[in-house]
Protein backbone atom coordinates (compact mmCIF):
# COMPACT_ATOMS: atom_id res chain seq x y z
CA UNK A 1 0.00 0.00 0.00
CA UNK A 2 1.39 3.40 -0.83
CA UNK A 3 1.16 6.63 1.07
CA UNK A 4 -1.70 8.15 -0.89
CA UNK A 5 -4.03 5.17 -0.71
CA UNK A 6 -3.29 4.91 3.01
CA UNK A 7 -4.36 8.51 3.55
CA UNK A 8 -7.47 8.06 1.40
CA UNK A 9 -8.55 4.90 3.21
CA UNK A 10 -7.95 6.60 6.54
CA UNK A 11 -10.16 9.52 5.45
CA UNK A 12 -12.89 7.14 4.29
CA UNK A 13 -12.86 5.44 7.68
CA UNK A 14 -13.56 8.82 9.26
CA UNK A 15 -16.81 9.41 7.38
CA UNK A 16 -19.17 7.41 9.65
CA UNK A 17 -17.64 9.03 12.72
CA UNK A 18 -18.04 12.51 11.26
CA UNK A 19 -21.68 11.75 10.45
CA UNK A 20 -22.25 10.52 14.00
CA UNK A 21 -20.53 13.54 15.48
CA UNK A 22 -22.53 15.96 13.36
CA UNK A 23 -25.74 14.16 14.32
CA UNK A 24 -24.95 14.56 18.01
CA UNK A 25 -24.10 18.25 17.55
CA UNK A 26 -27.23 18.80 15.46
CA UNK A 27 -29.53 17.09 17.95
CA UNK A 28 -28.06 19.07 20.86
CA UNK A 29 -30.37 22.01 20.19
CA UNK A 30 -33.41 19.75 19.72
CA UNK A 31 -33.00 17.84 22.96
CA UNK A 32 -33.37 20.98 25.03
CA UNK A 33 -36.45 20.53 27.22
CA UNK A 34 -38.82 23.30 26.11
CA UNK A 35 -38.33 25.88 23.38
CA UNK A 36 -34.65 26.77 22.95
CA UNK A 37 -35.45 30.28 21.75
CA UNK A 38 -37.74 30.89 24.70
CA UNK A 39 -34.97 29.66 27.02
CA UNK A 40 -32.41 31.91 25.32
CA UNK A 41 -34.70 34.89 25.79
CA UNK A 42 -35.28 33.90 29.41
CA UNK A 43 -38.97 33.45 28.70
CA UNK A 44 -39.50 37.03 27.65
CA UNK A 45 -39.98 36.46 23.92
CA UNK A 46 -43.23 37.54 22.34
CA UNK A 47 -44.88 35.14 19.87
CA UNK A 48 -43.74 37.35 16.97
CA UNK A 49 -40.05 37.45 17.93
CA UNK A 50 -40.27 33.74 18.68
CA UNK A 51 -41.53 33.03 15.19
CA UNK A 52 -38.94 35.30 13.60
CA UNK A 53 -36.16 33.60 15.57
CA UNK A 54 -37.44 30.15 14.63
CA UNK A 55 -37.41 31.14 10.98
CA UNK A 56 -33.91 32.55 11.30
CA UNK A 57 -32.63 29.35 12.94
CA UNK A 58 -34.61 27.20 10.53
CA UNK A 59 -36.37 25.53 13.44
CA UNK A 60 -39.74 25.71 11.62
CA UNK A 61 -38.63 23.26 8.93
CA UNK A 62 -38.83 19.45 9.05
CA UNK A 63 -36.04 17.80 11.06
CA UNK A 64 -34.46 16.06 8.09
CA UNK A 65 -34.33 19.29 6.07
CA UNK A 66 -32.79 21.04 9.05
CA UNK A 67 -30.09 18.38 9.34
CA UNK A 68 -29.34 18.59 5.63
CA UNK A 69 -29.00 22.37 5.87
CA UNK A 70 -26.82 22.00 8.96
CA UNK A 71 -24.42 19.65 7.15
CA UNK A 72 -24.43 21.72 3.98
CA UNK A 73 -23.72 24.93 5.85
CA UNK A 74 -21.11 23.32 8.06
CA UNK A 75 -19.25 22.13 4.97
CA UNK A 76 -18.95 25.74 3.83
CA UNK A 77 -17.88 26.94 7.28
CA UNK A 78 -21.23 28.42 8.26
CA UNK A 79 -22.60 27.14 11.56
CA UNK A 80 -25.82 29.13 11.88
CA UNK A 81 -26.56 32.39 13.66
CA UNK A 82 -26.15 33.38 17.27
CA UNK A 83 -29.35 35.19 18.28
CA UNK A 84 -27.70 36.61 21.37
CA UNK A 85 -24.59 37.99 19.69
CA UNK A 86 -26.44 38.57 16.44
CA UNK A 87 -23.52 37.21 14.46
CA UNK A 88 -22.54 34.18 12.42
CA UNK A 89 -21.47 31.29 14.65
CA UNK A 90 -18.82 30.22 12.15
CA UNK A 91 -17.23 33.63 12.43
CA UNK A 92 -17.41 33.76 16.24
CA UNK A 93 -15.89 30.30 16.53
CA UNK A 94 -13.36 30.91 13.77
CA UNK A 95 -11.86 33.87 15.61
CA UNK A 96 -11.30 31.67 18.64
CA UNK A 97 -9.92 28.63 16.86
CA UNK A 98 -6.36 29.84 16.31
CA UNK A 99 -5.67 30.90 19.92
CA UNK A 100 -6.84 27.49 21.18
CA UNK A 101 -4.76 25.61 18.61
CA UNK A 102 -1.76 27.73 19.58
CA UNK A 103 -2.41 26.98 23.25
CA UNK A 104 -2.57 23.25 22.51
CA UNK A 105 0.68 23.31 20.55
CA UNK A 106 2.61 25.26 23.17
CA UNK A 107 1.17 23.04 25.91
CA UNK A 108 2.26 19.91 24.07
CA UNK A 109 5.73 21.38 23.51
CA UNK A 110 6.08 22.27 27.19
CA UNK A 111 4.81 18.84 28.21
CA UNK A 112 7.35 17.11 25.96
CA UNK A 113 10.15 19.37 27.22
CA UNK A 114 9.29 18.35 30.77
CA UNK A 115 8.56 14.70 30.08
CA UNK A 116 11.42 13.78 27.76
CA UNK A 117 14.41 14.36 30.06
CA UNK A 118 12.59 13.05 33.12
CA UNK A 119 11.49 9.85 31.41
CA UNK A 120 14.99 9.26 30.03
CA UNK A 121 16.44 9.66 33.53
CA UNK A 122 13.73 7.41 35.00
CA UNK A 123 14.36 4.74 32.38
CA UNK A 124 18.15 4.83 32.64
CA UNK A 125 17.96 4.69 36.44
CA UNK A 126 14.99 2.35 36.59
CA UNK A 127 14.13 1.14 40.09
CA UNK A 128 16.69 3.45 41.58
CA UNK A 129 16.11 6.53 43.68
CA UNK A 130 15.80 8.96 40.75
CA UNK A 131 13.14 6.74 39.17
CA UNK A 132 11.10 6.54 42.36
CA UNK A 133 11.29 10.31 42.89
CA UNK A 134 10.12 10.95 39.32
CA UNK A 135 7.29 8.45 39.72
CA UNK A 136 6.15 10.13 42.92
CA UNK A 137 6.30 13.56 41.27
CA UNK A 138 4.24 12.13 38.43
CA UNK A 139 1.57 10.87 40.81
CA UNK A 140 1.36 14.23 42.56
CA UNK A 141 1.36 16.06 39.23
CA UNK A 142 -1.49 13.92 37.92
CA UNK A 143 -3.53 14.56 41.07
CA UNK A 144 -3.28 18.35 40.75
CA UNK A 145 -6.35 19.82 39.05
CA UNK A 146 -5.33 22.25 36.27
CA UNK A 147 -7.45 25.13 37.56
CA UNK A 148 -5.72 24.88 40.93
CA UNK A 149 -2.23 24.64 39.42
CA UNK A 150 -3.16 27.65 37.30
CA UNK A 151 -4.03 29.67 40.39
CA UNK A 152 -0.75 28.68 42.09
CA UNK A 153 1.25 29.61 38.97
CA UNK A 154 -0.64 32.92 38.75
CA UNK A 155 0.13 33.65 42.38
CA UNK A 156 3.81 32.76 42.11
CA UNK A 157 4.96 33.73 38.60
CA UNK A 158 2.30 36.32 37.90
CA UNK A 159 1.91 38.18 41.17
CA UNK A 160 4.81 37.32 43.49
CA UNK A 161 7.58 37.33 40.86
CA UNK A 162 5.60 39.38 38.33
CA UNK A 163 7.28 37.65 35.38
CA UNK A 164 4.32 36.72 33.22
CA UNK A 165 0.87 38.18 32.50
CA UNK A 166 -1.98 36.32 34.18
CA UNK A 167 -4.80 37.00 31.76
CA UNK A 168 -5.70 37.84 28.20
CA UNK A 169 -3.98 37.38 24.89
CA UNK A 170 -1.53 39.87 23.40
CA UNK A 171 -1.59 41.65 20.06
CA UNK A 172 1.78 40.94 18.40
CA UNK A 173 3.11 37.40 18.00
CA UNK A 174 5.80 37.83 20.67
CA UNK A 175 3.30 39.33 23.07
CA UNK A 176 0.93 36.41 22.44
CA UNK A 177 3.66 33.88 23.17
CA UNK A 178 4.36 35.80 26.36
CA UNK A 179 0.68 35.55 27.36
CA UNK A 180 0.65 31.84 26.51
CA UNK A 181 3.42 30.86 28.94
CA UNK A 182 1.39 30.41 32.12
CA UNK A 183 -1.73 28.83 30.58
CA UNK A 184 0.29 26.34 28.54
CA UNK A 185 2.54 25.52 31.49
CA UNK A 186 -0.61 24.76 33.50
CA UNK A 187 -1.87 22.31 30.91
CA UNK A 188 1.61 20.85 30.42
CA UNK A 189 1.93 20.06 34.12
CA UNK A 190 -1.26 18.02 33.84
CA UNK A 191 -0.18 16.24 30.67
CA UNK A 192 3.48 15.61 31.51
CA UNK A 193 2.88 12.89 34.15
CA UNK A 194 0.87 10.83 31.64
CA UNK A 195 3.64 11.23 29.07
CA UNK A 196 6.42 10.40 31.52
CA UNK A 197 4.73 7.20 32.59
CA UNK A 198 4.24 5.91 29.05
CA UNK A 199 7.55 7.17 27.68
CA UNK A 200 9.48 5.56 30.53
CA UNK A 201 7.80 2.22 29.91
CA UNK A 202 8.36 2.53 26.16
CA UNK A 203 12.07 3.35 26.53
CA UNK A 204 12.59 0.44 28.94
CA UNK A 205 10.79 -1.82 26.52
CA UNK A 206 12.82 -0.72 23.50
CA UNK A 207 16.13 -0.89 25.38
CA UNK A 208 15.74 -4.66 25.78
CA UNK A 209 15.44 -5.12 22.00
CA UNK A 210 18.25 -6.94 20.22
CA UNK A 211 18.87 -4.07 17.78
CA UNK A 212 19.97 -1.94 20.73
CA UNK A 213 22.70 -4.50 21.50
CA UNK A 214 23.56 -4.53 17.81
CA UNK A 215 23.87 -0.76 17.80
CA UNK A 216 26.21 -0.96 20.78
CA UNK A 217 28.19 -3.74 19.05
CA UNK A 218 28.78 -1.29 16.20
CA UNK A 219 30.69 0.86 18.66
CA UNK A 220 28.07 3.59 19.07
CA UNK A 221 28.13 5.63 22.25
CA UNK A 222 25.28 5.42 24.78
CA UNK A 223 23.73 8.74 23.78
CA UNK A 224 23.65 7.92 20.10
CA UNK A 225 22.11 4.54 20.89
CA UNK A 226 19.51 6.20 23.10
CA UNK A 227 18.58 9.03 20.77
CA UNK A 228 18.85 7.43 17.36
CA UNK A 229 17.85 3.86 18.11
CA UNK A 230 15.75 3.87 21.26
CA UNK A 231 13.99 7.21 21.41
CA UNK A 232 12.61 7.20 17.90
CA UNK A 233 11.03 3.82 18.50
CA UNK A 234 9.83 4.81 21.94
CA UNK A 235 8.25 8.00 20.60
CA UNK A 236 5.82 6.06 18.43
CA UNK A 237 3.58 4.87 21.24
CA UNK A 238 3.87 8.36 22.71
CA UNK A 239 2.44 9.93 19.55
CA UNK A 240 -0.57 7.69 20.01
CA UNK A 241 -0.83 8.58 23.68
CA UNK A 242 -0.73 12.29 22.91
CA UNK A 243 -3.45 11.82 20.31
CA UNK A 244 -5.61 9.68 22.58
CA UNK A 245 -5.26 12.29 25.29
CA UNK A 246 -6.12 15.20 23.02
CA UNK A 247 -9.61 15.03 24.54
CA UNK A 248 -8.18 15.51 28.01
CA UNK A 249 -5.88 18.20 26.72
CA UNK A 250 -8.87 20.09 25.33
CA UNK A 251 -10.85 19.50 28.53
CA UNK A 252 -7.97 21.02 30.47
CA UNK A 253 -7.86 23.87 27.98
CA UNK A 254 -11.53 24.72 28.64
CA UNK A 255 -10.90 25.26 32.34
CA UNK A 256 -7.52 26.93 31.89
CA UNK A 257 -8.82 29.34 29.22
CA UNK A 258 -11.63 30.35 31.56
CA UNK A 259 -9.19 30.84 34.45
CA UNK A 260 -6.74 32.96 32.44
CA UNK A 261 -9.53 34.84 30.56
CA UNK A 262 -7.96 33.51 27.37
CA UNK A 263 -10.06 34.18 24.24
CA UNK A 264 -10.22 30.60 22.98
CA UNK A 265 -12.91 28.01 22.20
CA UNK A 266 -13.07 26.85 25.83
CA UNK A 267 -13.86 30.21 27.39
CA UNK A 268 -16.36 30.79 24.58
CA UNK A 269 -18.08 27.52 25.46
CA UNK A 270 -18.33 28.43 29.14
CA UNK A 271 -19.78 31.82 28.23
CA UNK A 272 -22.20 30.34 25.68
CA UNK A 273 -23.47 27.85 28.23
CA UNK A 274 -23.96 30.68 30.74
CA UNK A 275 -25.92 32.67 28.12
CA UNK A 276 -27.75 29.60 26.79
CA UNK A 277 -26.53 30.52 23.34
CA UNK A 278 -27.51 27.18 21.82
CA UNK A 279 -26.34 27.78 18.22
CA UNK A 280 -22.86 28.61 19.54
CA UNK A 281 -22.85 25.54 21.81
CA UNK A 282 -23.90 23.44 18.84
CA UNK A 283 -21.22 24.86 16.56
CA UNK A 284 -18.55 24.56 19.24
CA UNK A 285 -19.26 20.91 19.99
CA UNK A 286 -18.88 20.15 16.29
CA UNK A 287 -15.61 22.10 16.05
CA UNK A 288 -14.19 20.42 19.17
CA UNK A 289 -14.99 16.96 17.81
CA UNK A 290 -13.52 17.73 14.37
CA UNK A 291 -10.39 19.02 16.11
CA UNK A 292 -10.02 15.74 18.02
CA UNK A 293 -10.55 13.68 14.87
CA UNK A 294 -8.08 15.82 12.94
CA UNK A 295 -5.37 15.43 15.60
CA UNK A 296 -5.89 11.67 15.61
CA UNK A 297 -5.55 11.62 11.84
CA UNK A 298 -2.32 13.62 12.08
CA UNK A 299 -0.98 11.21 14.70
CA UNK A 300 -1.73 8.23 12.46
CA UNK A 301 0.00 9.86 9.53
CA UNK A 302 3.09 10.80 11.52
CA UNK A 303 3.16 7.27 12.95
CA UNK A 304 3.25 5.99 9.40
CA UNK A 305 6.10 8.32 8.49
CA UNK A 306 8.13 7.09 11.47
CA UNK A 307 7.44 3.41 10.97
CA UNK A 308 6.81 2.20 7.43
CA UNK A 309 5.68 -1.20 8.67
CA UNK A 310 2.20 0.29 9.18
CA UNK A 311 1.76 0.45 5.44
CA UNK A 312 2.35 -3.26 5.12
CA UNK A 313 -0.52 -4.20 7.41
Amino acid sequence: MNLLSYIVSRLLQMIPVVIGVSLVAFLAIHLVPGDPVQLMMHGRATPETLQAAHAKLGLDQPLLVQYWNFIRNAATGSLGTSIIQNADVGKIVGERLLPTVLLLVTSAVFAILIALPLSIIAARRSDQLADHVIRLLGIIGFAMPPFWVGIILMLFFGIYLDWFPISGYGRSFGDRMYHLVLPSLTIALFLAPILIQSLRAAILDVMTAEYITVARAKGLGPWRVLIKHALRNALMPVTTILAVNIGWLLSGAVVVEYLFSFPGLGSLLVRAVGQRDYPVIQGLSLVFAILVLFVNLLADLSYMLIDRRVLKA
Binding site: V24, G247, W248, S285
Partner: peptide, 11 residues
Protein backbone atom coordinates in the same frame (compact mmCIF):
# COMPACT_ATOMS: atom_id res chain seq x y z
CA UNK B 1 -14.66 9.57 22.20
CA UNK B 2 -14.44 12.21 19.47
CA UNK B 3 -15.80 14.80 21.90
CA UNK B 4 -13.48 16.07 24.61
CA UNK B 5 -14.95 14.64 27.81
CA UNK B 6 -15.45 17.93 29.60
CA UNK B 7 -16.97 19.54 26.50
CA UNK B 8 -19.46 16.69 26.21
CA UNK B 9 -20.43 17.00 29.87
CA UNK B 10 -20.76 20.77 29.60
CA UNK B 11 -22.94 20.48 26.49
Amino acid sequence: VAFPFLVLIIV
